[in-house]
Amino acid sequence: MIAWPGSVLHHLRFINLSFWRNPGAAFFGVVFPLMILTINSLVFGGAKIPMHGHTVTAASFYVAGMSVFAVVMTCFTNLAVTILFDRDMGRLKRIRGTPTAVSAYVTARLLFAMAMGLLASMLCVAEGVAFFGVTIALPDLGAFVVTVLAGSACLAALSLAVVSVIPNAQAGPAMLNAVTFPILFVSNVFYPVDRLPAWLNAIANALPIRPLATATVGAFFGGGISLPSLSVLGIWGVVGAVIAAARFRWQPRR
């Protein structure tokens, strides 16, 4: 009898091995947000912008924004794309043909995506601190980590839900980007967004990325943990988990 936590760890080990050898996964999840952070900070980093009552550098805003972007890329887009390929290629089916408990395998996939989300966001912070004069107080970093992990869990659950409506791996990246990028552009991620039409503002606040960005930026600049924003993430996370539990497929549609 293999204990459940041991089974989770076993699969985490091989998911990790495979991830770092997969250039697409490692690049888009971890390197790409750092690249955009670098370019944005080099071009606009010195500008001053008002934030929560005081003035901050644009570079420190980008650190928070790109952390959210990294979480979306690793926990939503990248998790979905790898699952779609694994489903199409019969790899999920193979796992399901072994004595692995379904819950242990899904937990391993979720935990790994969350770990990569946290890692990518920490690398953004480290880059900002090391190269662009960004500072963050230790208690704020704690709130930031909690917020990033909550966002990672929510987006990973939504990712497992969304793969059930994507027909195959070929369609995956296009459909996923068509969902995420319009939302990212109205969500305080690439630049501060404060003059949206009211209706668009309402939509953005009801979707998960804007509340995550609001909470992450808030935590970064001393606002602590934003419970209203995390509640929105919690609701989306539960919706994602319920859809995933009901609709997740282990092999391609025949």
């Binding site: 076993h10 091995l17 019969g90 790899r91 193979r94 072994t98 004595p99």
Partner: peptide
Amino acid sequence: RIGIVAQENSPDPFLTVREMVRMIAGTYP
């Protein structure tokens, strides 16, 4: 107690043969 060779069942391309077999082995008692 069963082993399955399914149709359309490609291995993880980024794992070696030994890693792939160990990954599956670790799921059995």
